[in-house]
Amino acid sequence: MAVHRGGFLVWWVLAATLLVLLNLPLTWSRSVKAGIRETLAPLHSLVSRVGFRVAEAADALRGLGGLAVENRALQEEILRLRAELRASQWAVRENEELRALVGFRTRTTYRLVAAEVIARDSTGWWQSLRLDRGRLDGLTPDLPVMTPDGLAGRTVEVSDHTADVLLISDPGCRVSVRLPRTDSFGVLRGSGVRWDGRVLCRVDFLNPGHAIRPGDEVVTSGLGGVFPPGLLIGHVESVQSDATGIHRRAIVLPSANLGAMRQAFVLLLTSNERSNTARP
């Protein structure tokens, strides 16, 4: 009888725990999640840094013979980039002068927060990663996250020292995009990761009258209030008709290497900058 009572008690406690967990108010749920993330963040950070150092050391050992060649190539690259930078600075100055002449407001230079990737989604159901910067560094949900190569995603859950980023490869992440060559607009969403490890996205609702070609650049449109305009996302790989036949769909290869990200930059936007993202 005592065993039966004990068994009943176990069932009752389990059911009650599940009910409480599933119906926890959002603020409490966030607090619990943030607490666990904050506890694990230093360990995640430590282990991932050690892993990076080991990987770097292995890369250095593997590439020891090619260092001189690589060094020469890098010096040439620096010279080329300096020349490009001078040309760009001149173009920016000229652009600002012209914009001032026609009365456009000056574009904002966004403040960037550099962060390291310390963990990835541990459930397997989201394309996400965790950064080692959080609320105390000025981060909030819905901020764009970049790599030097292009857009990576947006922040979704932020604790004091960590921020979770939903990558553009996740089917739940949607970005309003523009294809500058044809001035086409569409909505980008993630298509996950293919079996060969390639990360793909697709752009839906493209105008079938626009001659979109493989190789076309895809950038953020600035509509939607999260991403400012002009952030590079990737390039069109192929174009196809959608199921309805009314619109076209483009498969896009993201420029950012989402599968091997180690560092990222979060764009700190004020609410004013967010609301102005769609303006010229």
Binding site: L21, L22, S29, V32, K33, R37, A119, S122, T123, W125
Partner: peptide, 11 residues
Amino acid sequence: VQDALGLGPLG
């Protein structure tokens, strides 16, 4: 722990 480290709700 598993749910806290993912983007879904707890439970």
